[in-house]
């Protein structure tokens, strides 16, 4: 009896949330504002923070963007994609090409002021993001007709094809990659974009339109039966996910300063997928925590460098055996088969 009352209470609260979706949104705006302020604050004191810690923080931010954007496709919409690193590479290459091409033309030797480089960097990131979104559209339209494992393997295939194409594009450095990318990525940019990604995808999924993603995930046939254009939802999720992956790629390129096609292969995609699954598919907070944890784990294991990858993979297996529903998924009920 007690459990029944509890259940109806949770049902009521869910219902009230659905009835007043607007009550959620101002909170999200406040959170975004707070996150941006925090990013500004961290950037303001960046001079006093150990550069190593800043690097780790930057890595965390980039991985959060990647994981949260993949979560929209894999978690919220339930389409298993294994090609996220491919989209990341499109963003990385295109944005690096933009800065490498325009920096000498616009700023000459002196490198330009902070504001000018900032504007250029933003433009480069957006170019990378849009190009990546376009790639997402081109890949998504044919492949999203497939389901499950087949979709996974086709996205994996497209990811590999993108990498091979970059290996063969001589203007973009071929197999050697691009060098000498200007170091524009700062902690502020990364944290701000991470906050924006979480905010945008969170709002998208919570919006009336965004319920469609969840409907497609929960039961595609039923979603189609009530008149949702399921293919369209899948493609939108794919394109938005690819856009943010492209942004993350741009940030990564201007952080590492050197990019090679090999850095965006299948292993990188897997790394991102692991973050999403470990966080609990579709659980944004969990995915963020998993991205933080999985970025920190190799750093923590640095003292035992020789055994680092062995421990990493061993922990991964143990986590899957002990908490198959995702490390940070505290919702009752078992994981969906």
């Amino acid at each position: 009896m007690k459990s029944l009352v509890k259940k109806s209470e949770t049902l009521l609260s869910v219902e009230s949330k659905i009835k007043n979706p607007k009550s959620k949104i101002p909170g999200a705006h406040v959170a975004l504002f707070a996150a941006l302020l925090m990013a500004g604050g961290v950037a303001f004191f960046a001079g006093r923070i150990d550069p190593y810690h800043l690097d780790v923080l930057t890595n965390i931010g980039i991985n959060v963007i990647l994981a949260v954007s993949l979560n929209l496709v894999n978690g919220h919409t339930g389409q298993f994609s294994l090609g996220h690193a491919g989209f990341m590479s499109v963003g990385a290459y295109l944005s690096a090409a933009v800065t490498l091409h325009f920096v000498p033309k616009l700023f000459g030797e002196d490198g330009g002021g902070t504001l000018a480089t900032g504007a250029l960097f933003l433009a480069a990131l957006l170019t990378g993001g849009l190009a990546s979104a376009l790639a997402g559209l081109l890949v998504g339209i044919p492949s999203l007709r497939l389901r499950g494992d087949y979709l996974a393997i086709v996205t994996l295939g497209f990811g590999q094809i993108i990498v091979v194409m970059f290996q063969n594009l001589e203007p973009l450095g071929g197999a050697l990659g691009l060098n000498g990318i200007p170091p524009y990525t700062t902690v502020f940019w990364v944290l701000a974009f991470a906050a924006l990604t979480v905010f945008t995808i969170g709002c998208l999924v919570r919006s009336t339109y965004g319920r469609g993603f969840l409907a497609v995930r929960d039961d595609e046939v039923a979603a189609a039966a009530i008149g949702l254009d399921t293919t369209r939802y899948k493609i939108v999720a794919f394109v938005v996910g690819a856009f943010f992956a492209g942004i993350a790629g741009g940030l990564y390129a201007h952080f590492r300063l050197t990019i090679t096609p090999g850095g965006f292969d299948f292993t990188k995609s897997i790394e991102i997928v692991v973050m999403v699954i470990l966080g609990g598919m579709g659980n944004t907070l969990g995915v963020i925590l998993a991205a933080v944890l999985l970025t920190l784990l190799p750093e923590v294991l640095r003292p035992v460098a020789e055994y680092r990858m062995i421990l990493y993979s061993f922990l991964l297996i143990m986590l899957m055996l002990v908490r198959p529903q995702g490390l940070f998924n505290f919702k009752p009920g078992k994981a969906k088969p």
């Binding site: 997928v273 699954i277 990858m309 062995i310 990493y312 993979s313 055996l321 198959p324 994981a335």
Partner: peptide, 20 residues
């Protein structure tokens, strides 16, 4: 009996373990 994706990730973990 658990979700296929979990088994998939575990398989990837085993693969990484053997490689490393």
């Amino acid at each position: 009996g658990t979700a296929t994706l979990n088994v998939l990730i575990t398989a990837i973990g085993v693969s990484l373990l053997l490689q490393s």
